[in-house]
Design a protein around this nucleic acid. Structure first.
Lengths: 337, 337
DNA sequence: TACCTATATGTTAAGGTTTGCATAAAAAGA
DNA sequence: TCTTTTTATGCAAACCTTAACATATAGGTA
């Protein structure tokens, strides 16, 4: 049977509270006694019962993770899961564990907030979420500290890649390589990343005094290879084809390129393509994809860092944004014009 | 302030225990009363305090997940994370949540078993683990129900793809397409999957009465594109080159193919290649990879199902294996000889 | 010596739930 | 109507930890 603090107290002829103090490094106890108790606890492999301790302290040292599994963005989505991985490592190093916030256990439906409240969750990281989720709104407006990534939400701190700058870097690089007629493949729904990259595209083009024709902005249905392929076909149908394309995301860029290849065009000889994200496969695609790399490790760490601060400082700063720098990764899909 | 069972009891003029019984569907209470209390609880959005309830019942309704993050197999590893996703959905539908089993919170080191014991974990899913991890052994030999996937461990039930059969399907398919000189790229460390696929390769070759030369078994360092590339180079150096290759994993197959392409060979015109896994990118690679698909959804579900059974039935059946069928996915990397 | 302070240790209630047991009420049987 | 059985409800302990408060002890000061 598992030992309790009472057992230890009895065995050491001290009071339970003394044991508790020793183990929790609280004051009001002699150093000698602390050592003795800690040593003993180690010897008998005592660990405080998690639940009893949480029940009492009202702090769970666990951080909720909202990870909506619809829309193909479950754990297998590398971008988010690698942010989560980094987030997880960071908070664990600070003594927290993570818990998935779920809206139904078995068959009883429960709102995110209720879930967190009743589990005494200390803070929440919203990794992916469906736009307009009512549970989310309720949670965000509650007293529980929250941060998110890659999306914006009123009253919620966001850690996000510097998409505008990334897009500008991409365009500038294409320009540097001699391209002046540049197209952009964007995404129809305008998730924040897409919107910002489009914005950055326009800005950079303006700064470089390059004209942008409406038909050179190609709208893609969603983040998927197939839609990129479709966009490629539409690109091929253009009368006056640009020599370079900045594509909103690597996965779309790959589909895009595959359409060009199929039509007998060579990338980068005929058309230069630059992507965004630097997904793990970008370096293995043919041609190896030149792209703007998002730093998922940093995204996760910054999110974790900000959340922990927010939780501990109880500062009222709920909204705001931290932009994480992105980096141009030069590979083989862009060529001098 | 959050409502407790006492508040509700007072408001409804009943005893706390009555409320508890009503909410937990325990017997010894009239149906009318149960309805009334449940309705009221719903109205005031009452949920039992997780910790208090766990403390008392000694059942946490949470399942530990051992997910070793070293060796590049953290959450961003799609194969394991998609198994985990499927596992998670399944157990959540059955009223369980998942918790990562970690060996250090903050700075205090804790063994897996201690962690589980002190959190009252009901069962554990070992997703990835380092071979020879002492904590693992201790956990597996404890009273806590465990299952794993993709590896074997004494005293531990495993859910794993039918690798032998998959390899045989692969070889048979190559043979069917007219190939008789077939090579195999394996992996040096002989993780179970690699070992079984090698075994299946030999078996199928024997059954088909095809000779296998020693130098046609190419050992690759590890599961990575780069090592596949290296293997490809070694293949190129072969005097008497086979016309077809069965590669132990898609990611290696892709690196392998890229080496061939670089040397001016065409896949599948010059050499046919079949992979294993069906990673998400297989269908986008060039050529689209013919491969043996592992059913990650099923792997996760079966693991979950077995674990829940083991937990509830308290059956002594700890070891054993469930093989999940794999499927040949015909794409473009294999051609008639 | 008497008293005070600081520090070390002990006592006990609280945290919210569940559960075995006791009791009360209702239903059934005589 | 009275006893017996069944059913519904309440009481109180238990789960284990923490923390506020109380007490004891040692050392120092007047």
């Amino acid at each position: 049977m598992r030992k309790t603090i009472y057992d230890i107290a009895k065995e050491l002829n001290v009071a339970p509270s003394t044991v508790s103090k020793a183990l929790n490094n609280k004051s009001g106890i002699s150093e000698k006694m602390r050592q003795k108790i800690q040593q003993y606890a180690k010897d008998v492999r005592y660990y405080a019962d998690w639940n009893a301790s949480k029940l009492k302290t009202k702090r769970s040292f666990s951080i909720g993770v909202v990870y909506s599994e619809d829309l193909d963005i479950g754990l297998e989505h590398t971008f988010f899961s690698s942010i989560l991985q980094s987030f997880k490592s960071y908070v664990e190093a600070h003594g927290y564990e993570i818990t998935f916030v779920i809206s139904n256990l078995g068959n009883r439906e429960i709102s995110y907030l209720d879930f967190c409240l009743h589990k005494n969750i200390d803070g929440v990281f919203i990794v992916t979420s469906l736009p307009g989720d009512p549970y989310l709104k309720e949670l965000v407006n509650s007293d529980i500290s929250c941060v998110t990534t890659d999306i914006y939400h009123e009253n919620l701190f966001t850690v996000i890649s510097d998409n505008v700058d990334g897009a500008k870097q991409a365009v500038r690089y294409l320009h540097q390589m001699g391209h002046t007629k540049i197209a952009h493949v964007s995404e129809r729904h305008f998730f924040p990343a897409a919107r910002e990259r489009l914005e950055g595209f326009y800005e950079a083009m303006r700064e470089l005094n390059l004209p942008v024709q409406d038909e050179h902005i190609i709208m893609c249905e969603y983040y998927a290879f197939e839609y990129g392929y479709e966009a490629g076909q539409r690109f091929l149908a253009l009368d006056d084809r640009p020599t370079a394309v900045f594509v909103v995301a690597d996965i779309i860029a790959m589909g895009f390129i595959s359409a060009l290849k199929e039509a007998g065009l060579n990338v980068p000889d005929d058309v230069s393509v630059i992507g965004f994200d630097d997904i793990p496969f970008a370096k293995h695609y043919e041609p190896k994809l030149t792209t703007i790399s998002q730093n998922t490790t940093k995204l996760g760490e910054k999110a974790a860092d900000h959340l922990l601060k927010q939780m501990n400082e109880k500062t009222g700063v709920r909204s705001g944004t931290e932009k994480v720098p992105v980096e141009l990764i030069v590979r083989d899909s862009v060529k001098k014009c």
